[in-house]
């Protein structure tokens, strides 16, 4: 464990807290992509299958349960709970996620760390997480302006993987046999997708944290 990874996990937890607060207190899922939340639920449920046999630390196991529970709760609330479900707009949030899931599944089958079913599913979840934010970014692009809490949610989510990148660099230089090309590649792509958002987020928040983010 190192500070970058710890801050990355805290930033990830913060993104869940912000989103759960927004949809439960704000009673609205406007501006939030259900498609992205469904992808995250698939990512965590598939990646953390090893919860039952790969016990590397209590910290890991606890957060795996938290991430599966939170992502499932978010999908449930936006899909089934009133009044949130009425604030989700399927016409706007219509990114074809099958074009993300399909290629990631093929990539997971072909490029993984070991030829066991779990490793293929694990690699699939890593690739899928890298592109899971796309429906959300497309929704924000369509709306042009990003509501305040949503912008903090996306920023925390981007920061989490950005901090993980620093964690991988740190581990690469401090540990001798540390090699994780799959997560390095996917994590770089994932963080790269946020660059544009971060630029607009920084520009808008310079004048005050509660200003909405404007996307071109």
């Amino acid at each position: 464990m190192n500070i970058f990874r710890f801050l990355g996990d805290m930033s990830h937890i913060l993104s869940f807290v912000i989103l759960l607060l927004k949809i439960t207190q704000g009673k609205s899922a406007a501006g939030i992509s259900l498609r992205t939340q469904e992808l995250y639920m698939i990512v965590f449920c598939s990646r953390y299958l090893d919860l039952f046999w790969n016990f590397s630390s209590l910290y890991n196991s606890f957060l795996k349960v938290v991430f599966i529970a939170c992502s499932s709760a978010i999908v449930y609330i936006i899909r089934f709970k009133s009044p949130q479900k009425d604030t989700w707009n399927p016409e706007l949030d219509n990114f074809p996620i099958q074009y993300l899931i399909g290629p990631c599944a093929v990539a997971g089958l072909l490029i993984n760390q070991d030829w066991t079913p779990f490793e293929m599913i694990w690699a699939f979840s890593i690739y899928l997480e890298a592109v899971a934010i796309l429906p959300q970014l497309f929704l924000l692009q369509k709306q042009g302006e990003v509501e305040n809490l949503t912008s903090h949610y996306v920023a925390a989510l981007g920061a989490y993987r950005g901090l993980y990148l620093m964690n991988w660099v740190y581990r690469y230089f401090t540990e001798d046999d540390y090699l994780q090309r799959i997560v390095w590649f996917a994590g770089t792509v994932q963080t790269g997708l946020y660059i544009d958002f971060f630029y607009h987020y920084y520009q808008s928040k310079r004048g005050g944290l509660s200003r909405p983010v404007k996307l071109p």
Binding site: S56, L63, D114, F118, Q180, V183
Partner: peptide, 10 residues
Amino acid sequence: CTALESKDEL
């Protein structure tokens, strides 16, 4: 170490 043991991150 095996691929499984190397999975110590979330």
